[in-house]
């Protein structure tokens, strides 16, 4: 008879790595609220607009010229699936925002196709977020947000905007696509902040 309780499943079963209310999946479910944009990297552009209206732009070549990081993180979707130890490659927002002059507290991520999601600017900094363009060693597939998506793995995955094309920085917090329809303005999976008021 084993001495380890069958209730202990460790990382393989999720265990302590699963936030409350989540289940473990080894698939990579595709959630989408609209048609998948197919953006050629030749046409891709990422723009940061500050609260004073100043714009900072990167095209694909400029993004590729920046130092990239290999990222291994757990991701948690508000529809209750979690996927552990996902591997990505991308550019830290610390790098992209290093020379952006701003005193803003909030950011709205905008995507090709019209999707938006809001985040505190602090949650995009200090090694917490990236513009990711590879998943599992391959270029990011369009259905998963390629050519590049925002990756903010410490928040529910709707905050990791697919097909990201820019950030608009602001002194005030506006709400994005799902946040205006009942989802939580912040979305911490460990506090189970799924819906407004949670």
């Amino acid at each position: 008879m084993g001495i380890v309780s069958p209730g202990f499943t460790g990382r393989r079963g999720g265990g302590k790595d699963l936030p409350p209310g989540q289940y473990l999946t080894h698939e990579f479910p595709v959630l989408s609220a609209g048609p998948t944009p197919h953006i050629l990297t030749d046409h891709w552009e990422f723009t940061v607009t500050t609260e004073t209206g100043e714009k900072y732009k990167w095209d694909w070549a400029a993004l590729m010229a920046l130092p990239a990081e290999e990222i291994t993180k757990d991701i948690h979707c508000v529809t209750r699936w979690s996927k552990l130890q996902t591997t990505w490659k991308g550019v830290s927002l610390d790098t992209l925002l290093a020379d952006v002059e701003t005193g803003a507290d909030f950011a709205m991520a905008h995507s090709y196709g019209g999707y938006t999601t809001n985040l505190p600017l602090d949650d995009l900094l200090d090694g917490q977020s990236w513009i990711a363009y590879e998943y599992d060693g391959e270029p990011l597939d369009p259905e998963h947000g390629g050519p590049a998506r925002l990756l903010v793995p410490h928040l529910y995955f709707w905050k990791s905007a697919k097909w990201v094309r820019g950030l608009v920085l602001s002194d005030t917090e506006d709400l994005g696509f799902w946040e205006t329809a009942g989802y939580h303005e912040y979305g911490d999976p460990w506090k189970e902040q799924r819906y407004a008021g949670d």
Binding site: V30, L31, A33, G34, V78, W158, W178, A181, G182, Y183
Partner: peptide, 13 residues
């Protein structure tokens, strides 16, 4: 209309 249900809500476009 086109309805997307594999999402955190139902979206008709």
């Amino acid at each position: 209309s086109r309805v997307y249900v594999d999402a955190p809500g139902t979206v008709a476009r």
